[in-house]
Design a protein around this nucleic acid. Sequence first.
DNA 1: AAATAACACGCACAATTAGGCATGATTACG
DNA 2: CGTAATCATGCCTAATTGTGCGTGTTATTT
Lengths: 264, 264
Amino acid sequence: MPPDNDALPGERQQKILLQLNEHGRVLAADLAIRFGVSEDSIRRDLRELAARGLCRRVYGGALSRALDFAPLKQRQEHQTGRKQALARRAVQLVRPHQILMIDAGSTNSAIADALPEDMDLTVFTNAPDIAQRLMEKNGFEILLIGGRIDKRVGQTVGAQTVDAIRRLRADLCFPGTCAIDAETGLWSMASEESLIKQTMIECSGESVVVVSNENLGAVAVTHVAPIDEIDHLVVESDAGDASCAAFEAHGVSIHRADPERSKA
Amino acid sequence: MPPDNDALPGERQQKILLQLNEHGRVLAADLAIRFGVSEDSIRRDLRELAARGLCRRVYGGALSRALDFAPLKQRQEHQTGRKQALARRAVQLVRPHQILMIDAGSTNSAIADALPEDMDLTVFTNAPDIAQRLMEKNGFEILLIGGRIDKRVGQTVGAQTVDAIRRLRADLCFPGTCAIDAETGLWSMASEESLIKQTMIECSGESVVVVSNENLGAVAVTHVAPIDEIDHLVVESDAGDASCAAFEAHGVSIHRADPERSKA
DNA sequence: AAATAACACGCACAATTAGGCATGATTACG
DNA sequence: CGTAATCATGCCTAATTGTGCGTGTTATTT
């Protein structure tokens, strides 16, 4: 491993994430040597990344979040509250007769559930999960984008998928979000996913990013799109005003979800 | 098993979970050797995982929680016990490293559930439902065939799908069956489905038709394939001998499912 | 019933970690 | 240009966590 003695603070976190994604884990002691800083600084980085949900903190280092497939079910259960509120707000951006492009992801599954049935919508998706949810509803024309399946994220990936997307044109695109930052734009966790999202955005008129608080203003592993390719941003009801203002300064429309109803 | 002498504490628990999901059970003594720690530490890990509901603690090790959800699958089995029996027999025709082409349909969903995980199988399918079932298992390469979705049958159809199938080659094909007759061959309910099934059979080495009693010797709406393109026929345990003999006369191998076990 | 294996609990020791604090660097601002 | 504010960093200390071992208990086997 090349010693990066002169890495910028933010740059260091970026490189830690890369190494994390490649090896599945990182050791605090190793990173301290590699970047020529104390373990305290590394720990601070790791703590911060974990707070954003980009890694799992363990004794001695950190683990990649990619192999957490147990949370795959948890995520689907988790969506009951905050994700549904986000989804309810997001579908208000959809107008009748539109063609939608919906990427995989737990938030987007919630959006699929929240789509109204009386709008004569056409949906392109690379997620079997979303296709199935829509299949149970009426009034949708569904087109499944084929390709090799990455079971970690539950979607099709690879050249075949990208090629299939290129042949399509949609009005509205919902790229699954891993992180978004007002300056640098949209980020995702793996390069294959990233390519899919890029292509989806290219082939769509407007792009809507739906993001939960922990991914707002965060940076992940691979870059997907600059901020000016994002037209709408749907955030939670209690998202920070400062963050939102930063996005609006870049021409992004902010849509705030309704406060979650405290119910039985 | 590779000795993971330098695994982080948290990492170790994650790997234990992996092994647990793969083999269904783990032994404390084995794990202690593998990770180069005392059995006490392993026991502490297992105790902790069990407390989080991620495994079931037993004397000597731990069991996967997946078997706890077996009752859930058994419920499905009770509902469609005959189909499960058919599926169990059908998957015995599959050999390791094969490439399968699986059409949509409730029987084929049961087959997907019944496929073993340790055979390094590749599966082509046009049914999101089947893709999702396989996603939850290990050891499968899954390729989803894209296209417009027909929600009545839960599969992709149309020219795009046919075109995608033509680019593939499989060893074994499971065309979803609507009806089969010894003289006239395979039939389905709609012309679009029919075209899909035809193409699948053309692009596969052998074809296996799995059929329940009520569709044996029946004729439906549109013709799919003549009887000589069908290599194997899986029938229920109490299928009529006369019908079976008629198929065998046309060179079709008959595979009879085991009688359904009447159990608690 | 006896023997054996697996287990839980408490203890001591080592490694890792979080928080507080001072220092040097970078940035913001008048 | 200079001052103040902020930030990143390293060091220190206290607290936490993980570990192995001994002891006594419980479960399984013979």
